[in-house]
């Protein structure tokens, strides 16, 4: 039996990321992991909702939040999810170059999102003196949004490691599942952001 897993268009399976046992396991494992992550974020959301008005005389959500920046961030992250879909589409067509291109764009959009977030936090700290320690609201806000940001950082590191490692190798049955699981994780981060956008920012602006 040969163990050459590299792909060529003629022998390529329907979906290279799920053609091996390992690939299937990875994908399934990540799905379960995301189930746990959902509970994790649900608990952070719950904590935030309980504490969002506990400002201890400090800045409130209405004082702080502005929609422009957050809207930009939402667009960046949602688009990056879309570009990762393109990347996986090209993976299934065995077009390595295009896949890498779209993954590169995904990474850039993710970095853009992070930059905005860092700017946002810096803005709150310098202009409003609103920190992690100011009030229970501050702690809950930075923890929830910060944990999401941490997930973005982790996702980006994952993506960049994958891209660098496999830049010269092309697609094969060993690394295809890795790209695919990354994409799934990245969508999850995106979904969490949609909830943050709604629960933290939109609800914070009105109430």
């Amino acid at each position: 039996m040969s163990h050459d897993h590299s792909l060529n268009p003629k022998t390529m399976p329907e979906d290279p990321s799920k053609a091996t046992m390992e690939g299937k396991h990875k994908f399934l494992g990540l799905w379960f992991f995301l189930g746990g992550e959902t509970v994790l974020f649900a608990c952070f959301f719950g904590t935030y909702l309980a504490l969002r008005n506990s400002t201890a005389g400090g800045p409130t959500s209405q004082d702080l939040f502005g929609l422009d920046l957050v809207f930009l961030m939402t667009v960046l992250l949602l688009t990056s999810s879309l570009t990762s879909v393109y990347a996986i589409y090209h993976m299934k067509n065995n077009d390595f170059k295009k896949m890498m291109l779209w993954l590169g764009i995904t990474a850039l959009l993710g970095i853009g999102f992070l930059a905005c977030e860092i700017y946002e936090f810096a803005h709150y700290i310098h202009d409003y003196g609103f920190t992690f320690r100011s009030s229970a609201f501050g702690s809950a806000f930075y923890t929830l949004v910060g944990f999401h940001g941490g997930h973005v950082i982790f996702g980006l590191s994952w993506l960049i490691t994958l891209m660098v490692r496999n830049a010269k190798r092309g697609l094969n049955l060993y690394n295809a599942p890795k790209f695919n699981t990354f994409a799934l994780y990245w969508h999850f981060i995106d979904v969490v952001w949609v909830f943050i956008f709604t629960v933290v920012y939109l609800m914070g602006m009105v109430s």
Partner: peptide, 12 residues
């Protein structure tokens, strides 16, 4: 130094 459980800063 966060204030999740610090009642003085609004914690619960």
């Amino acid at each position: 130094g966060s204030a999740f459980f610090d009642v003085a800063l609004g914690g619960n």
